[in-house]
Design a binder for these strands. Structure first.
Lengths: 335, 335
DNA sequence: GCGGATGTTTTTAACGTTCAAACCCCGTGG
DNA sequence: CCACGGGGTTTGAACGTTAAAAACATCCGC
């Protein structure tokens, strides 16, 4: 494994000159640069990242805590991780995975990784209602950025990127409206979840703007399962006044809606328009295809990395709210 | 940020003694050790991993290439990553994520990560039929271990861990047999996939052992979608001779089967027993619950890490075949 | 009372890189 | 003719750690 020293000897220059050839090529005379580059190529030299990190005290690694999965089905995690990795790599960085207990119990793990210089900073996700991590990291002066707002807090420590759930629901409602739906229901979760509230608000406000009814059209499911989605849909269908559109807060709930409709001999897309959230792999794989609000993963990842790695001069706004994109499939085909 | 030198000064010993206190405490006199440990604690010292890695030329990081997701829906990736992380951490290591082009085009990326000392070795997954990575890495002398065999090769370079698909199907068939099913079909993929063949063989052999028919009971789906699974099930149900059990090669196909059964007024679990593969989050979330073959993720991860990090003395067998576990749910409830 | 064995601690020298300062050379202007 | 400036290059030191060897202390048996 070639080192700077060997390259320097081969090119008959000093070690520092080779270092400059890589980090500040403009400092070299063109012919020297050329000669050094040839030696680098010839010896197949690759800088040792550990030595570099030791000297510069920057490891170019970003920590990400893998959510413990029984917690919540995170069907789009692979998309997110892929996008995050790709974005990090575009800046010469990489993602380091780790596990940690939830809440404040996990903080020593974060602290340790930073103190031992395994990572420069963190990307947080799976943000919870009173997530203690943001404040703690901020207080320790450890760099981080959050995917997701800490809901119900007026001000949240540190920078964040999030997807506009209210706007997402609004788009879904408008899409259903444009395809002729006039009684559009909302399948949600309990009010305790900030994310659920955000999406519910978008639905309610847009319905009201369009002059559509909302009374009795919001159903809260206890769990994020197909079963619950189906039950909730059944309740909607059994109630007075037909429902011809359903905005579900998750693809799983939407799947439940599709199942219940089909079971009753109704055709999703023709008789009732259904939309989901997140555009998980399921949306594509289910029949007749589930219209869903796709999170702009690449853009999210890009923003996260930019904010996290942008120098301190980067006095960016505290947060960045991105718009989901409605991917239209059979479940909302014009009736 | 405290360094060894500062701790040494505080404890009034040499730097090396502090290092020994951490790496070889048995070498210290108990009272010295006690004193040094107090200083470490007091100054909240954490060893700098970069300096250590530079000296020992071992980074304690394991590379894992995030599969590019459009490729294949990998519904259990989060489970796998979590298990892998946890297993790595038990040995003081961590997982570094990266992206790379598929096949041989990705090899420079692997090489680079290793040459720059970002990782000590790799865990490969998403193994493909003629996966070039194994041979390439072996030839370069880069440590790795594979989750998944390179199918249809008599000998595969390097060590691997895999789940016994044939045994999985066999378990599923026997379970369906024990709950009274006598015409058990198989929902698979084309023969080109080694994984598919493995699972198909287990089904066929076990049916024959039990004296059950197999002729006309194996259906190949072109894609891994719910739609395809439903179509295939429809074909089975339309053919001569009733089908009362279905072993599907994936949870997605199994979901298709459930849908088609329900559509025809049949009750999964009562009229027809259905099993899937992988125990993805869907299996739990669908109604009436999908019986599925769970990959022993924790054990897989543990074996992968053990093989990869076990010293060279570890002349372990080239491969390790683990048994999947049948998780029984409503879709195969005794009829 | 001395050679040797054993146990504990310190010294020295790296690991491969980058930063800061010094140095050299050459052209320019006074 | 010399001081000055600046591009290009080298020198020296440092980042924080560990391996190996050296030094020191203690104890034992003869």
């Amino acid at each position: 494994m070639a080192t700077l020293k060997q390259v320097a000897a081969h090119a008959e220059v000093s070690v520092q000159t080779v270092s400059n050839a890589l980090n500040a090529p403009h400092r070299l005379r063109p012919d020297t640069l050329e000669r050094v580059n040839r030696s680098i190529e010839l010896l197949n030299y690759r800088p040792n990242r550990n030595a570099r990190s030791l000297r510069t005290s920057a490891v170019e690694l970003i920590g990400y805590c893998v959510p413990s999965w029984p917690n919540q089905t995170h069907l789009v995690m692979d998309q997110f991780l892929h996008a995050l990795c790709a974005a990090a790599e575009r800046t010469g960085r990489h993602i380091l995975l780790f596990t940690a207990p939830g809440g404040v119990d996990g903080m020593p793990t974060y602290d340790d990784l930073h103190a031992r210089r395994l990572v420069d900073g963190f990307v947080l996700s799976q943000t919870e209602t009173h997530d203690p991590r943001h404040g703690w990291l901020k207080q320790q002066g450890i760099p981080f950025v959050s995917f997701g707002r800490v809901w119900k807090e007026t001000t949240q420590p540190g920078a964040w990127v999030d997807v506009d759930g209210a706007a997402g629901s609004a788009t879904a409602v408008r899409h259903l409206y444009e395809t002729g739906r006039r009684r559009i229901a909302f399948l949600g979760w309990p009010k305790s979840s900030g994310l659920a509230e955000d999406r519910a608000n978008g639905w309610r406000d847009t319905c009201q703007d369009l002059g559509l009814p909302t009374a009795g059209l919001a159903v809260r499911c206890r769990e994020d399962t197909i079963e619950e989605g189906a039950h909730a849909t059944a309740r909607l269908l059994d109630a007075d006044g037909a429902v011809d559109g359903i905005v579900a807060l998750s693809d799983i709930l939407a799947l439940g809606a599709l199942r219940e409709l089909t079971r009753r001999g109704l055709t999703p897309g023709r008789d009732v328009g259904v939309t989901g959230f997140d555009d998980s792999p399921l949306a594509e794989v289910v029949s007749p295809g589930l219209t869903s609000l796709r999170q702009p993963m690449d853009q999210i990842a890009e923003e996260l990395i930019t904010i996290l790695t942008g120098g301190p001069a980067e006095t960016a706004p505290a947060g960045r709210l991105l718009q989901p994109e409605l991917v239209i499939r059979g479940s909302s085909a014009p009736g």
